[in-house]
């Protein structure tokens, strides 16, 4: 577990290329413990690639990333104990009920009795507002509910760092705002560090303490800071266009 005050995540000159195609290079930032940090940018800029590097699904072709004090390449198993991940689609297991989905990490990684596992899983689902839906299959719930259930599954083992990939993508503004409130509520209750990949402007302003912006043309990061500061003072045309919704 990352110690208090120490950065939860350090991305140090990370780069990724596939064959000769460079996705991004020289991306560096730190995420403080307890922070809600947003990775943003237009389509194809490498947001999800960077997320996959941070959660150990992709080995950076350049640079180094540490999560919870562990190198994501050398100590990926230790990193996985520190993190929970919500994928963009939710990635719930279709043959399991929501309760069974949330119980799965508890079954795999604890020796808790079945009753305790069910009790904990129901509490996690209640925390995300799904107390009444424990027995439904993923095919029987809405997109917003699926994302909430995926967050509950990511929280199953109370990891100190949570990665959320496009939590409000494809949702109506009210449901999306509800998810933003949930993220802030969970941060306040659980003291988690959140890394959120999104390009939803409202979400960014609602939840982000700081953000990093990637750009496809620049093949790297073009801004790092608090969203309001970037909106008001950035001189980079893409950053200004993004935050002020100008068409380029």
């Amino acid at each position: 577990m990352s110690g208090a005050g120490a950065p939860a995540i350090v991305v140090d000159h990370a780069g990724q290329s596939f064959g000769g195609r460079v996705i991004f290079e020289d991306v560096s930032f730190t995420v403080a413990t307890g922070e809600v940090f947003v990775v943003l940018g237009g389509s194809g800029c490498g947001k999800s690639t960077l997320l996959n590097q941070m959660i150990g699904l992709l080995t950076p072709t350049k640079g180094r990333i540490t999560v919870g004090g562990h190198d994501v390449v050398a100590r990926v198993a230790a990193v996985r104990r520190e993190i929970g991940v919500m994928f963009q689609s939710g990635a719930l297991f279709g043959s399991m009920t929501l309760l069974e989905n949330v119980m799965l990490p508890l079954v795999m990684f604890t020796d808790l009795p079945a009753r305790a596992r069910a009790e904990i899983a129901r509490i996690k689902l209640a925390m995300v507002g799904l107390a009444e839906a424990v027995n439904l299959l993923p095919s029987e719930i809405s997109g917003g509910m699926a994302k909430r259930a995926a967050i509950a599954r990511a929280l199953a083992l109370d990891p100190p760092i949570l990665f959320l990939d496009e939590p409000s993508a494809g949702l109506d503004p009210i449901t999306g705002a509800g998810l933003d409130r949930l993220i802030l509520d969970l941060r306040a209750t659980l003291d988690c560090t959140f890394v959120v990949v999104t390009h939803e402007l409202q979400s960014i302003f609602a939840i982000a303490d700081r953000c990093v912006m990637l750009d496809r043309a620049a093949r790297g990061m073009i801004a790092l800071g608090e969203p309001r500061d970037l909106q008001q003072s950035s001189t980079h045309p893409t950053v200004r266009a993004f935050f002020n919704r100008d068409a380029q």
């Binding site: 309760l99 079945a114 009753r115 305790a116 069910a118 009790e119 129901r122 509490i123 209640a126 925390m127 507002g129 107390a131 424990v134 027995n135 509520d185 209750t189 659980l190």
Partner: peptide
């Protein structure tokens, strides 16, 4: 605070019994 938050989320109390 955490227990208060959980009590608020499950006002009737959560049991392991699944409907």
């Amino acid at each position: 605070q955490l227990m208060a938050r959980l009590r608020a989320a499950v006002p009737n109390g959560v049991t392991a019994k699944v409907p």
